[in-house]
Design a protein around this nucleic acid. Sequence first.
DNA 1: AACTGTGAAGACTTTCACAGCA
DNA 2: TGCTGTGAAAGTCTTCACAGTT
Lengths: 217, 217
Amino acid sequence: MSTSPKAIPEPTVRRLTLYLRHLEQLTGKGMHKISSRQLGEDLHLGPAQVRRDLATFGQFGQPGMGYKVASLVEQLRKVLGVNRVWKVVLVGAGQLGQALLRYEAFDRQGFHFVAAFDTDPFKIGKKVGAVRIVHLDTLEEVIRAECVQLAILAVPAAVVPQVVEKLTKAGIHGILNFAPTSIEPIPGVVVDHVDVTAHLEQLSFRVIRMLEETDQT
Amino acid sequence: MSTSPKAIPEPTVRRLTLYLRHLEQLTGKGMHKISSRQLGEDLHLGPAQVRRDLATFGQFGQPGMGYKVASLVEQLRKVLGVNRVWKVVLVGAGQLGQALLRYEAFDRQGFHFVAAFDTDPFKIGKKVGAVRIVHLDTLEEVIRAECVQLAILAVPAAVVPQVVEKLTKAGIHGILNFAPTSIEPIPGVVVDHVDVTAHLEQLSFRVIRMLEETDQT
DNA sequence: AACTGTGAAGACTTTCACAGCA
DNA sequence: TGCTGTGAAAGTCTTCACAGTT
């Protein structure tokens, strides 16, 4: 009976990210306004889809003119919550973990690594990118001291449950899981999953279908 | 008017991967049959969802008994196209690319790297995991000679269009893109996208929403 | 009794098509 | 004219609920 919950559909949220990235590139090119038709064309979406998505959280377009790129970028950042800095920890400093630590685009988008954890004595103390690898046992301490909100998990599937428990205890708010295993839902923690093998399997499925359709004799 | 195209919904395909992975783990544990209720519980899905998904491509369950794990695994593999080996090349042997080359789970799932390409003279000739890095100029040659079907792109966004063109010319069937840029649809080529920044932004959005909902005074 | 497969209902998402503004 | 925002239609996906099998 107070603030309306708004209910933004999940597919819309996924596309907001795409709009934001594309619009950021456009500002770099000095483009000041854009229409839903053009934006849709660039991202291979229908113009109605674009307008519906953007209208979900307010009215930004100017009828007859289109959207002002700069203000749209600002609004999208606000909606997605990237108009501020998120503190992030990495758990699991293997090959993938280290590649993520070195990926500079995260910082530019407001996701700032404050620490990396591992249990391998050979890795501890090593500096990767801008952060030092420390022992997993210090996880709770660091997360509380630094008020870290997000964690990226790049550990073997087998240890995911234990690490998740530690993170939950430490009061983390969100987890992005790269391990090929599903995480039990936890109240108060948002979980998302990046599953590269799943994407390859999707690709496999779609390639087969495509070839079958093409090959109709 | 001949073979029915069946039309499997995309969300279903995404879940098939999850079923497959979970069932493979179950075989390892000596579990021989499972019900839709149990499988759904394990993966946090409704039992009706599971049955609908599995029934999409044939009848596998035994009423009163559930599903036979081994035969379901076999069927899912067949549907997803992972009952065979896919030849894969990596383009872009940076941090992320090298981490992917070393990720052994791909091979186990039937995705076999046959080559890695880059343009950096310091990287060329180096062996990462089981494959050697060679110059991008040899891409078409290698893809044709080895009949490679899939490519993983881990190059900077700026060079994606050129690389995609090379791949298309070489007759690739599927591309999995890790660069934060969208790829123009190409007839005869299936494209999928792994976008880590997008996942972080999703997480950001959902964490904010969760905290707002929790905080209602 | 325990369970699957599925028609039909319901929920959600996309697309159409047009009123209204610049 | 060129464009947005949106009610309503169409399309897609999920869930219910039950007939039918073991």
